[in-house]
């Protein structure tokens, strides 16, 4: 069972105020989140994933003062994780294939905006059913591309294209609504 954004934020603020128990709970709850964040992107290099999880925890600790208490917490933590991942790629210069990098970046900008003020269902209603389902499966329910493809009876490429186009359409609409 994953902790909610609201719970994580409360723990984080507790930690910032010096509450060690809240802070321990926060770090503990972040571990599975970070493992799946990196796991999805590194495609199962288990040692690298664990290294990045630890580095991210340390960075979150050292730089916790940059978290703005009035803003979403998970987006902040993922921003630290994303930086750590990109930094590691740069450092090791491994050729790691990041599938759909653009999609990852778009998706996280979308998550921020969404968590802040959007009703996912209402948004997805405006898309074609195929796109809506692809986004819901991969971005909301956390299925991998392959799992989503299997459950929808489509090809991987089909799912990726649907997610990409759907997110683009959503981003355009969000910009229009401002």
């Amino acid at each position: 069972m994953r902790a909610s954004e609201e719970q994580l934020r409360i723990w984080m603020i507790g930690g910032l105020d010096g509450d060690a128990d809240a802070y321990t709970a926060l770090l503990g709850a972040l571990v599975p989140l970070l493992r799946s964040f990196f796991g999805r992107r590194l495609r199962g290099a288990a040692d690298d994933v664990e290294d990045l999880v630890q580095e991210t925890l340390m960075a979150i600790h050292t730089r916790r003062g940059t978290y703005d208490r009035s803003r979403p917490f998970v987006a902040w933590a993922y921003a630290v994780a994303r930086y750590k991942m990109i930094d590691q790629f740069r450092r090791t210069r491994h050729m790691i294939q990041i599938e759909g990098l653009e999609e990852i970046l778009v998706a996280e900008g979308f998550e921020d905006a969404c968590a802040a003020r959007m009703d996912i269902d209402r948004l997805l209603d405006g898309l074609s059913p195929k796109q809506a389902r692809a986004i819901r499966d991969t971005k909301v329910d956390g299925l991998s591309i392959a799992e989503a493809a299997q459950s929808a009876g489509l090809s991987d490429a089909d799912i990726k294209v649907s997610v990409h186009r759907g997110l683009k359409a959503l981003a355009a609409r969000l910009r229009g609504e401002r």
């Binding site: 930690g15 910032l16 105020d17 010096g18 509450d19 060690a20 802070y23 321990t24 770090l27 503990g28 571990v31 664990e50 999880v53 630890q54 925890l57 340390m58 600790h61 916790r64 003062g65």
Partner: peptide
């Protein structure tokens, strides 16, 4: 990772 969390949590100065 668990040891790391314990170490970090031991250093919870208020920010």
């Amino acid at each position: 990772t668990d040891d790391l969390i314990r170490a970090l949590a031991g250093d919870t100065r208020p920010v």
